[in-house]
Design a binder for these strands. Structure first.
Lengths: 353, 353
DNA sequence: ACTCAAGCTCGAATCGTTTTGGCTGCCCGC
DNA sequence: GCGGGCAGCCAAAACGATTCGAGCTTGAGT
């Protein structure tokens, strides 16, 4: 009835173990406490003893065991960040920014990729809990359920980056950009070039950022009274999705003269589609993207895009996290960083038919 | 004389702590050992008790503390990988491959970026040692000193990926490609198109892979007796380096008709340079690169490149590492994976003057 | 001469797990 | 009526660090 107990006894291999603080203590004929005090500078230790300890540490190649340390201290000096897509350079850059900032404060960061799926994100968050990370920054997966995160993370501090947490939750710490504003500016730029038939390819509206960008686009078009339902598309955030929507848009009876893509991978997809259809960009069709990336100047045409300060978002998230962890501040502030429209070659006035 | 001891006492904030196994035990009126046995299925526990424990675990949101676990078990179920440049999609893909493979075996992986500097890599490796990771895969930084790694890592198992460790060390586990062969094949392809004045932009010869690729290139050209010193360049591995070398090559009296770039970022740099100089690629100058990347089909011309199976390299490295950790095997084998020449649009026969 | 503080060192408790060995019943076969 | 195996449970010893309190010398101040 009851299951046969499984013996965990992987044969106790005597792998030559690491030197411990006890080994150092023995080597210099001192007590463990003294060695600890010497290494951490946390109590008086004579110069002579200190020197002997230094020598022993060097000779034994002693390195403190951070597991034991973390257990005792209840602090691991580890942070984590989870993003929806690590191969997207936008998120990669956020991660890099956070790593750079927090490394200076002596934190390590674990990075996770949810692939836009809450199920995967949850697995990662549970792992973080077990490892007792000191804090985590989340760019929540796009398929909802973000509110369950508090459950699995318990009391571990969280900072949100880029995307909002669920609306019903009290907005915690957050850093990002004013998406509606940025999208409106971008759309107005296209309008100023003379475009009227402007399409948008947006992400699923379950992600707040996508919804906000759509909102900004609509506000700009409503202002000039030329918003048309058939030019509004949304779907998957990836390249294939962008390409498919672009093809649908361009092959309809009265195609748009400009396309605004609400993230970077969809922009690439749209560009691919345009080239496949043999349309000239920007002469026949203008393309404007979101989330700049490093090699966007290598493409032909060089893409005009809305640039988000990805690195700064990462660094700010790191800073906010560390601040709340070390209780330098308890303000659950939200930080809004500025965007920038990088005007390059992919947008031009529309053809006068 | 002796320094004033620094008090570490960050005020002992009573952050509401996590539930422990002891809490679970108390909740169900059992002993710690019983709870542990139940959770790990490592000893007989009655069905009734097991159920009560499950319930308590759920109710208290108990999650085992992996620090304590790792301390006791002397196993952290954590691996690490350190690469020279995370923003290079080639290495990013290796990392991704390793993560995917090892996640299935329930390992977490820490990833580090050495930026081609041993000093940075060393810092990272020291951190890994303190955290007692179970193993690490290294793509060693290009500036030598790789042999010191054994020192700082102690007895932690290592697998090398892509790049070789120093020659003087006994070659440990390694996975990568036959660089000399791949470079030779690529060069022969250019020869078969009719090129004779073929240049190479290679990396610093301190990295074995760069040296091998140069070697393969030379072998192919020597075979037809048209190797020329002035067509051999090496320098930094980044985009700017590639661009600079390409400009020097193309502006000399008798410029090459084809350029072979020994990694992906330098290839992008060369392409940029070619476009800046207004040379038509591939009509006037052919370009062949190394290390394919995802969006290479978006560039114009679509780049012809030698593809390395990055993902497989990462997965294989992960597998080898886990195998040696779990002592399924102790063969310090080396694995050579096949490359593939992705023929696209950036190479054409040379102009007949 | 007495007190007190500073300088130096140490023992023991603690952090949250796993694991070993032992203790209890109980049932079974003699 | 007894030995012994099995099921179920537990106490205590690790694992490797930090930290609290206390003990022991000195030297200075009174």
């Amino acid at each position: 009835m009851s299951p046969k107990p499984v013996s965990r006894s992987t044969r106790r291999t005597r792998r030559p173990q690491h030197a411990t603080i006890r080994d150092v203590a023995r080597a210099v004929g001192a007590s463990i406490s003294t060695v600890s005090a010497a290494l951490n500078g946390t109590d008086y230790v004579s110069a002579a003893m200190r020197a002997k300890i230094e020598a022993a540490v060097q000779q034994l190649q002693y390195r403190p065991n951070d597991l034991a340390r973390g257990l005792r201290l209840r602090r691991t000096h580890t942070l984590a960040i989870v993003v929806p897509d690590l191969s997207n350079s936008f998120y990669a850059e956020i991660v890099r920014g956070m790593k750079d900032y927090t490394a200076a404060a002596n934190y390590t960061v674990l990075v996770g990729d949810s692939r836009e799926r809450w199920a995967e994100e949850k697995l990662f968050l549970e792992m973080l809990h077990r490892r007792r990370v000191d804090g985590v920054v989340r760019v929540p997966a796009g398929d909802g359920n973000a509110s369950q995160a508090a459950q699995v993370l318990g009391t571990i501090p969280v900072v949100y980056a880029d995307r909002y947490p669920e609306a019903d939750h009290p907005v915690a710490a957050w850093v990002g950009v004013d998406n509606a504003r940025a999208a409106m500016d971008a759309t107005q730029y296209l309008i100023s070039l003379g475009h009227r038939r402007i399409a948008i390819i947006s992400g699923p509206t379950t992600t707040r950022t996508a919804a906000e960008r759509l909102e900004g686009y609509q506000r700009a078009l409503r202002a000039i009274g030329s918003m048309h339902k058939e030019y509004i598309r949304n779907g998957e955030l990836d390249m294939a999705g962008g390409a498919r929507q672009a093809i649908e848009l361009l092959t309809q009876a009265k195609p748009p003269t400009a396309i605004f893509c609400a993230n970077n991978t969809m922009t690439l997809g749209a560009l691919e589609a345009i080239q496949q259809l043999g349309r000239a960009c920007p002469r026949e069709i203008s393309l404007l993207g979101f989330d700049d990336f490093a090699w966007s100047t290598l493409l032909r045409p060089r893409l005009t895009m809305v640039r988000q300060p990805a690195r700064e978002i990462g660094m700010t998230a790191g800073r906010m996290l560390i601040d709340t962890i070390e209780e330098r501040t308890r303000n659950r502030a939200t930080q809004t960083l500025p965007t920038q429209l990088m005007v390059r070659d992919s947008c031009a006035p529309p053809l006068r038919p």
